[in-house]
Computed example of a mutant assay.
Amino acid sequence: MSEPVSPGDLTIDVAGTEVTITHPDKVFFAERGETKLDLVRYYLAVAEPFLAAVGGRPLLLERYPDGASGKSWFQKRAPKSAPSWLTTAEVVTPNGTTSNALVATDLAHILWAVNLGCIGFHVWPFHAAAPQVADELRIDLDPSPGVGFAQVREVAALTRDLLAEVGIEARVKTSGARGLHVYARLLPRWDSYEVRAAAVALARALERRHPDLVTARWWKEERGARVFVDFNQNAPHKTVFGAWCVRPRVGAQVSTPIGWDELDTVDPDSLTIATVPARLAERGDPWAGIAERPQALDPLLDWSRRDLAGGLMDAPWPPVYPKQPNEPPRVAPSRARKD
């Protein structure tokens, strides 16, 4: 780090690109008093696995200019004041709106966003260079009210085992909040519609095997005290909170890749910007090599075709999406009965 460029500011040379950090002492996380500069230092410490996980992908920014306890908004578009070296890519929202999103090209891009008060990077499921290909299956295990983390752990292990049965290797990370995310890196063969269809089939298969523990029901009123397998996180243009990214929580929790051997003991709330760098230095990256072993989605797509041939309709889509072929009525069952 260099000398301040103006009172209180710092300029960081990031592999030849200078990034200015203004107000580095501003407190971003109230629980331990960590600052914007502490957040910068965190991303410097985890740069290698972070960029291995999200590098080259467009990002949706979650901005908290006054820290995790302050006001916030989501930002899809890079501002017009962005520096000339910044890389962006055109992305499309579910309603068809286009915008030029920041691309996780290198760490300078990330620290530039952190300086804007970005606490939270939501990642598109494709690389900016190949937007037509979704190369990640993202299984978001979402606990319904009344469901504890022990049940989420159990469903994560069941998801891993079911995928392993059909030859798909999966990795896991904490969400940074109450859930877990199970990922599989895919061969570059499928688009987001196909990946979502595979996720729907997986969710339904898990529900059939473990109906008291797992639900694939989109409507909250039907889920009960079960873990919801959120297949719609794989819908086209949908972003998911990124690996190694810091959550906008006062404790600065991190969405942390973990080893499957840690699943039964991990405490997600203890994985913070204060603890994750040392943990990485000691244990290494649990997701190392994920890109070198892309997985085939064919078995899950076979399940999807089997379900449709057996008379099942597609699962409901989120309300922001246009009506899809073979989709059931997009209305909660209780309301449908009243109508």
Score class of each variant (00 low, 15 high):
residue 8 G to P: 03
residue 10 L to P: 00
residue 16 G to W: 02
residue 23 H to S: 09
residue 26 K to I: 02
residue 27 V to G: 12
residue 30 A to S: 14
residue 33 G to L: 13
residue 35 T to W: 06
residue 37 L to K: 06
residue 41 R to N: 15
residue 45 A to Q: 08
residue 47 A to P: 11
residue 48 E to S: 08
residue 50 F to W: 07
residue 54 V to T: 12
residue 58 P to A: 12
residue 74 F to G: 06
residue 74 F to Y: 15
residue 83 P to G: 03
residue 84 S to M: 03
residue 85 W to S: 01
residue 86 L to W: 11
residue 88 T to M: 04
residue 94 P to F: 06
residue 99 S to F: 13
residue 103 V to K: 10
residue 104 A to V: 02
residue 104 A to L: 03
residue 111 L to H: 05
residue 112 W to A: 01
residue 116 L to R: 14
residue 119 I to F: 13
residue 131 P to I: 01
residue 133 V to Q: 01
residue 136 E to V: 13
residue 138 R to A: 09
residue 142 D to A: 02
residue 149 F to Q: 08
residue 163 L to P: 00
residue 178 R to E: 14
residue 192 S to A: 15
residue 196 R to P: 02
residue 198 A to I: 09
residue 204 R to L: 15
residue 209 R to W: 04
residue 217 R to V: 04
residue 219 W to S: 10
residue 222 E to K: 11
residue 239 T to H: 05
residue 244 W to Q: 09
residue 250 V to C: 02
residue 250 V to F: 04
residue 266 V to P: 04
residue 271 L to A: 04
residue 281 A to L: 13
residue 287 W to V: 03
residue 294 P to D: 08
residue 298 D to E: 15
residue 303 W to L: 15
residue 305 R to G: 01
residue 321 Y to W: 01
residue 324 Q to H: 10
residue 332 A to F: 08
residue 333 P to N: 12
residue 338 K to C: 09
